[in-house]
């Protein structure tokens, strides 16, 4: 009885649409027709995409974007967490300031960066001119790099906060034991802190990877996918295929490809956390038996 409204809404507005999309991806589908009027064309939408130059380009851009963003953010975020892991009075203020970029609308983030990257009036080129260096055409020649930088600005704090939380919940005894045994700071990090943080870090990384495939608004406002197709990630391509080229069937097929990739990532993550739980239980059982 308590569950009913939630179940109904999710069935109507989430699961039904997803099923509908899978069904629609096998059809020649135009926005002006309803789905039942369209023709069944089998897997033509799927095969057509593979010979589509633009789709392959956007797939490559998506993968480059997602992986480079996640790798750099992991290194920066974890590194900063290790550096800033001290008893500090202002820590909560710092964390508050750090989550600001994540809370602001992606559209606004895109707007800010678009201004800072502006070829003549933007902040970065002003600084470069002041330093006597040639201006850089950020959103022209280095569009993908610029987009990646903006995303790093927005999401490194996420990893930083999670890594810091993991770091501060580490068992103090292990660290103390290491210190007494004469481990240097670096050895402590490599042999004790990082391995103990690993479970949280892996989950964080997968979450961030899933989110990186979903980025859309920031890039849309900054570059609109251009110049050419150089920053057209798949989410953007889907939106354009549906709204500009009016090929709903093809967009649906593309969505399914994207969904499939994300499903694999999610399965990995779910499987990993299950495995973690089982292992922990086993360790506990083993400990009990010893007693």
């Amino acid at each position: 009885m308590f569950m009913a409204p939630a179940l109904i809404i999710m069935a109507v507005a989430l699961f039904y649409p997803l099923m509908y999309m899978v069904y629609g991806s096998f059809r020649e589908w135009d926005p002006s027709q309803s789905l039942s009027e369209s023709d069944f064309i089998g897997i033509a939408n799927y095969t057509k995409l593979w010979s589509d130059e633009a789709f392959r380009e956007s797939l490559a851009v998506t993968l480059t974007f997602a992986f480079s963003v996640v790798i750099i953010e992991m290194i920066l975020g974890v590194g900063l967490a290790l550096l800033l892991d001290r008893k500090l009075r202002g820590m909560s203020v710092l964390r508050t300031l750090f989550i600001l970029p994540m809370m602001i609308a992606p559209v606004v983030v895109g707007l800010m960066w678009r201004f800072m990257y502006h070829p003549t009036d933007g902040t970065f080129n002003r600084w470069l001119t002041a330093l006597g260096i040639d201006r850089v055409d950020w959103l022209g020649d280095h569009a993908l790099l610029s987009v990646i930088i903006a995303d790093i600005w927005q999401w490194t704090p996420f990893i930083f906060i999670l890594a810091l939380a993991a770091l501060q919940s580490l068992p103090r005894s292990a660290l103390e034991a290491a210190r007494i045994d004469g481990a240097t700071g670096w050895q402590q990090i490599v042999h004790i802190k990082l391995p103990l943080m690993a479970p949280v870090l892996i989950v964080t990384m997968l979450l961030r990877l899933i989110d990186a495939f979903k980025v859309l608004e920031v890039i849309l406002v900054m570059t609109e996918g251009g110049p050419g197709l150089s920053t057209e990630i798949m989410a953007l391509r889907i939106a354009r295929t549906a709204q500009e080229f009016r090929e709903l069937g093809e967009a649906a097929a593309m969505s399914n490809y994207l969904l499939l990739m994300l499903m694999i990532l999610t399965m990995l993550m779910y499987g990993f956390s299950r495995w973690q739980e089982i292992r922990e239980q086993r360790l506990k059982m083993a400990a009990k038996e010893e007693i």
Partner: peptide, 26 residues
């Protein structure tokens, strides 16, 4: 928790096509 994760996975862009179709026709 699995449902949470599964829904977190779905990008808005993926919902775009079916939502557009359903909300306008069905």
């Amino acid at each position: 928790s699995f449902a949470t994760l599964a829904v977190r996975m779905v990008p808005p862009a993926v919902l775009l096509v079916p939502v557009f179709g359903l909300w306008n026709n069905t």
